[in-house]
Design a protein around this nucleic acid. Structure first.
Length: 627
RNA sequence: GCCGGAAUAGCUCAGCAGGUAGAGCAGCUGACUUGUAAUCAGAAGGUCGAGGGUUCGAUUCCUUUUUCCGGCACCA
């Protein structure tokens, strides 16, 4: 007698061993049809898994998140099966589930073409129609190695070799295709109803750039056709938000072949940027920080002391002048340390907080460049805090709160990552442990959740990274808070303590936006260019209906400028409809329309970017709208 | 940096299979004097990313190179 406990607490009894699918059948035939897999005693398994002892069982259909994952994983196998049928010479490697879909890496003599993708997708659909059963097979390690070796699948052999001894090696067989896989999978290919191959790309074997490059095929898979359609539509919408596209349309910034990765800010982009900088000074610096500006280029020796010359050299631009070597700063910290060293400091001065909008240059790989998100020169909204070890915790908390408040203004969601000691690092393990502990403690104290990101710290200290989600769900590192015991040591900086002796201060590096350029890129996508009034490059355009109102329109325009509004005037001989369209497309928050009526009543008619009409009002009333 | 794709007017894009390029919008000129997302007409605008090659002839084919796009790897 076998007792199976279901999620609702009910117990079903069976005479002998049953499969997950049998249990589903026992409940209803509809459920049996929908069952993709099962969770037996908290372990995700195939629907065909035989249960031989009492167990708690949950049936997985496409309604469960696990179900969708199984669908995606099985679709990856389906892809591999299709590829092997069409291109027998291709070797299979790995094919994991990713967000929204899956990919599969193949080793093949040539890259797959878009035409290949179409053929593969067709073959996949054909395999689905054949309703091929997917079966699990278990083998010993030796058997499995021999098996894949005989097929010439050397990558699979390599993977098996790296599986810890003693672990069961499972394979999945669907028709003539057998793949090494942990599973579980859908019971039959007919369960895969909505998928699409998206793109081909090169990818390194095992993610290591020293290894061979494989051919990766990306696909997306969903529960049904409607969800697939919805997802494809979402991608289209996300594309419209692309900051590179909007940046061009709205004339915010440009790029030039003469400076790949070096963005140019156009007049409108500068208006946006200045608005952001003003806000940053008001919100982040407040009265808590002083502001400094340090040189772009400094002597090599400084970078040797800081450690950059040995740890960051490959990213640095250098120049030789008067037979001396200089480097363009990739970071602002050494300059800030020089400012600190410019005078003596008492414990009474600490914490000493210095902000800097510092322009840094980093030589990034050409393939990494991406609009404003990834550039070769960018402005960090940097700040350095010099404090005593006792002050670390309160400073860390203050910074976290400040960043949180700043992001909230824009309605951004974000995640925090704690990055620990990397391979290439300065300072002892002991110092690193203290620093990592200090960051973790501060977060625990104020109850902020975070994810550990091991080995990803800066070479001089551990850090907290604040990652913002962009329009398409990509995460971008923006804010950062780095704890540094090393630079103070290297530059031998100190403060005079209460006891009259010299003490070593601790240094905190912090940034809220991270890179102003990247942050602006994210803002563009976040708002789709429809910036809130305070950020909008052009806040209002005065539009006349005919020449008759030109004089009054001009006086309105002048008054707007006097009131500090970033305004433009459009007196062109076009119909109002045309002008409205032009400025609406430029996403100007307010259009002030002026015809004979407005002139007569000394008013303006206000139209918002979203098309809503606020009607006629006095200019004073309009100015009051955003105060 | 690696793999693949792309580069044609200011912008968005056509250009079949080699025969020195075309549209819409913007810009310019003129007419219209306009009431909430495109008024009409006219003229103009291009070394077809750059270098080299094949050819009687190259935007088109080959090659080198630059930049961009999608991934990988790296990162704010």
């Amino acid at each position: 007698m076998l007792k199976i406990t279901l999620p609702d607490g009910s117990v079903r009894e069976f005479d002998s061993a049953v499969t997950v699918l049998d249990i589903a059948k026992n409940i209803s035939s509809g459920l049996a049809k929908a069952t993709l897999a099962g969770v037996v005693n908290d372990k995700l398994v195939d629907a065909s898994t035989l249960i031989t002892a009492d167990a708690t069982v949950r049936l997985i259909t496409d309604k469960d998140p696990e179900g969708l994952e199984v669908i995606r994983h099985s679709t990856a196998h389906l892809l591999a099966q299709a590829v092997k049928q069409l291109f027998p010479a291709a070797q299979v490697t790995i094919g994991p589930v990713i967000e929204n879909g899956f990919y599969y890496d193949f080793s093949f003599e040539r890259p797959f073409t878009p035409e290949d993708l179409i053929a593969i997708e067709k073959k996949m659909a054909n395999l689905v129609d054949q309703n091929i059963k997917v079966e699990r097979v278990e083998m010993s390690r030796e058997e499995a190695i021999e098996f894949f070796d005989s097929l010439g699948e050397k990558y699979k052999v390599e993977i098996i070799s790296s599986i810890p001894a003693g672990e069961i090696i499972s394979l999945y067989k669907q028709g003539d295709f057998i793949d090494l896989c942990r599973g579980p999978h859908v019971p039959s290919t007919s369960k895969l109803k909505a998928f699409k191959l998206m793109k081909v790309a090169g990818a390194y074997w095992r993610g290591n750039s020293d290894n061979e490059m494989l051919q990766r095929i990306y696909g997306t898979a969903w529960r049904n056709k409607d969800e697939l359609k919805e997802y494809l539509h979402l991608l289209e919408e996300a594309e419209k938000r692309d900051h590179r596209k909007i940046g061009k349309q709205m004339e915010l910034f440009m790029m030039s072949d003469y400076g790949p990765g070096f963005p140019f800010f156009l007049p409108k982009g500068m208006q946006l940027r200045n608005a952001l900088e003003d806000f940053w000074r008001k919100k982040v610096l407040r009265n808590d920080y002083s502001e400094i500006r340090t040189p772009i280029m400094l002597h090599k020796e400084l970078w040797e002391i800081s450690g950059h010359w040995f740890n960051y050299r490959e990213n640095m631009y250098t120049s030789e002048i008067d037979e001396m070597e200089f480097a363009i700063k990739p970071m602002n910290c050494p300059g800030a340390v020089l400012v600190y060293k410019n005078g003596l400091h008492s414990y009474k001065d600490l914490p000493l907080r210095m902000g800097e909008l510092g322009l840094v240059h980093r030589h990034e790989f050409s393939g990494a460049l991406h609009g404003l998100f990834r550039v070769r020169n960018f402005t960090q909204d940097d700040a350095h805090i010099f404090c005593t070890p006792e002050q670390i915790e309160s400073e860390v908390i203050q910074v976290i709160n400040s960043i949180d408040e700043f992001y909230k203004t824009f309605g951004f969601s974000y995640e925090i990552f704690l990055s620990t000691k990397p391979e290439k690092a300065v300072g002892s393990d002991e110092i690193w442990q203290i620093a990592e502990g200090a960051l973790a403690n501060a977060m625990q104290k104020i109850g902020v959740p975070y994810t550990l990101n091991e080995g990803d710290g800066a070479f001089y200290g551990p850090k907290l990274d604040f990652k913002i989600k962009d329009a398409i769900g990509r995460m971008w590192q923006c804010g950062t808070l780095q704890l540094d015991f090393n630079l103070p040591e290297r530059f031998d900086i100190h403060y005079i303590g209460e006891d009259g002796n010299k003490h070593r201060p601790v240094m905190l590096h912090r940034a809220t936006c991270g890179s102003l350029e990247r942050f602006i890129g994210i803002l563009i996508e976040h708002y789709e260019g429809k910036f809130p009034f305070w950020l909008a490059p052009v806040q209002a355009v005065v539009v006349n209906i005919s020449e008759k109102q030109a004089e009054y329109a001009n006086s309105v325009y002048e008054q707007l400028k006097l009131a500090g509004v970033r305004a433009e005037i459009d007196l062109s001989n076009e119909k109002v409809g045309y002008k409205i369209r032009q400025h609406s497309m430029q996403k100007v928050p307010y259009l002030l329309v002026i015809g004979d009526n407005e002139v007569a009543n000394n008013q303006v008619t206000v139209r918002r970017q979203d098309g809503s009409d606020l009607g006629a009002m006095s200019l004073e009333e309009f100015l009051g709208l955003n105060n």
